[in-house]
Design a protein around this nucleic acid. Structure first.
Lengths: 336, 336
DNA sequence: AATTAGCACTCAGGGCGACACAGTGCTAGT
DNA sequence: ACTAGCACTGTGTCGCCCTGAGTGCTAATT
């Protein structure tokens, strides 16, 4: 029922609308793309496409714009992923290569995606699930204040300050430090978290209270849901497209960690996923599309990242950028 | 030349305009505020105020709106700082009290200010200028990769991953660690930074190359301009006010660290400062006002924070919130 | 059966005039 | 020094017309 030409028409409509932002009519369609048929024929095709719900007209005498369903078909069957230019790939490589810590990798990735797509970038911190305890430091800061530092073999550093009920003394702290390092060194974080509870008994009764406070903080660091730490950037690009009223909602959504979680969370971890307009799980983002991908190795994804923009976006280009960046970020983080 | 009543009129205009968003006329002015004179008299006053540049009319037959100069006078002489309610103060205290690390303090502060003022909050990370080296860790992550961790006595933790030219061995790393800790422990960061250059000679020639790479990373952590790390939040609140075209510029400015630096940097560190509209150093923010304050102790400010909103903002309220939050944040951070 | 030409139809957008209205500035009077 | 009264001015809005883009339909053509 949708022959070859109708699909081509749909593709043309999507492409034109994305680049011009204006409803596209039969006439301009045959002009810009060298169709061998007359506008009237195209109109018939468009009527069918509209009936099927792939395109719609804002008002009677206007051209057509793609519906979410139309974009969906476009993404699924009518377009591929546009590979980046060699120059772009190289730029990504050198830019990300210069990162000197996880936080730096994440913020650079955001900037990179913003730059590449001129839209909003969303990047989730890499999961600590596969990390192991490398070293734990316990340092006295003040008479009743300690700092607990957790270092993982993946180069992550987590820390907590701890307020104690009673003053600490050097020997006890050293002992606590020795105990935790001896028991937890080399363990996976999850594993280590399980062991924390058993550590109390190795501490002399007098120091037990303080030690437990330390253990609590440590446990906190070990189980912290890093997946929930998500950063975004490029909000200024939203203002360019005229969300008019919706902008408020979009910005609000972006500032809610929980919302961002859902946004990335429900995407298939194995591949590039595209969520178009109303397909979106978040109410405030019904007028936007999101392209997401996991990064890390294929079988062991570390976390996700993505790009958000108006449903009228350059899907092939955005997908290309997201895929490339995800791939490089994964590489950078895995080689440690 | 500006008698008592004229000032009162100006105050009334500012207050009304801030709350209604609409130009205010002589009639509504005498209605809402119980002036004992007729609208005509007020009109004369307004004519004078306009002549002096404190108010303006968008078009001939509209009411008046305050100019930047008018807001300036309002802030300087016609209004005070509105203290927060007891409930609000308590909320601040408990909310910030729950923070468990510097990063946490900063992000909570942003959220707090956003909540309190319903505008955009900007918070600068506390300076490390007064911190001293507490401990330095050097940990091997991979054959040619190390992690350098710097812990300060103020509970800050900075880290860098280092890629080496040649593989490391345990003994050398231990030696490097011992050397840096022995030489730098207890030093102010600036001081320590100066000493790093002298450390090379204490390392055996064979390890010199690797050690220098470590030193570079360490130096980097020591001198990193933390003042330049600035976080903001509440962008959604911008959409509420109708910046129309300006919004783009404002968002762009907010995403530029450098711009934020200038924004906070040029404010008087000793007290609450208000920068109104065109007084603003940043071009894109000419339609906004910024209320900033330093936090930390009075003589030793740690950094600055502030709130940004449309020139038409509730100055007394915003100033109250900024002052209160700055005070509490300072308290939290200084008690360590 | 598919395509095309021709034509009537619809609707957003822009320009125009009329009107109401809010708010002003001025003048003359208290 | 204040006020009442009044003429004046510019915005916003409503209705109107017109234009132009783009459509859908029908009848003719391949």
């Amino acid at each position: 029922m949708l022959d070859e030409r109708k699909l081509t028409v749909l593709r043309a409509i999507v492409e034109d609308y994305v680049s011009t932002t204006e409803p596209v009519g039969s006439k301009s369609l045959v002009d810009r793309h060298h169709f061998d048929v007359s506008p009237a024929t195209i109109r018939n095709d468009m009527a069918v496409l509209e009936e099927q719900g792939f395109i719609a007209q804002p008002h009677t005498s206007a051209g057509r714009i793609p519906t979410d369903k139309g974009y969906r078909l476009f993404v699924d069957r009518l377009s591929g992923v546009k590979p980046l230019s060699v120059a772009e790939r190289r730029a990504i490589e050198t830019f990300l290569g210069g990162a000197y810590s996880i936080d730096d990798v994440v913020t650079r990735t955001v900037r990179l995606l913003v730059q590449l797509t001129r839209q909003v970038a969303v990047v989730q911190y890499p999961s600590l699930a596969r990390s192991s305890v490398k070293q734990i430091e316990v340092v006295g800061l003040a008479p009743q204040k300690l700092l607990v530092v957790l270092i993982t073999d993946t180069g992550r550093v987590e820390h907590r300050t701890v307020d104690l009920a009673e003053p600490w003394d050097e020997a006890s702290v050293a002992h606590v430090r020795a105990v935790v390092n001896a028991s937890l060194d080399g363990r996976k974080l999850a594993e280590a978290a399980g062991l924390v509870a058993t550590l109390g008994e190795r501490i002399p009764a007098v120091d037990r209270a303080n030690a437990n406070t330390v253990f609590t903080a440590l446990l906190d660091s070990l189980v912290e849901r890093h997946e929930e730490k998500i950063v975004f950037g490029g909000a200024a690009n939203l203002a360019a497209h005229d969300f008019s009223k919706g902008l408020r909602d979009v910005l609000e959504a972006l500032e809610e960690q929980v919302v961002l979680m859902r946004l990335l969370g429900e995407a298939d971890p194995a591949m590039l996923t595209v969520r178009i307009g109303t397909e979106n799980p978040v109410a405030g983002l019904r007028s936007t599309s999101v392209v997401t991908s996991a990064y890390g190795s294929a079988d062991q994804p570390l976390a996700k990242l993505g790009v958000l923009g108006p449903t009228r976006m350059d899907y092939p280009g955005t997908m290309g950028a997201v895929r490339a960046v995800a791939s490089y970020v994964g590489k950078i983080l895995m080689e440690s």
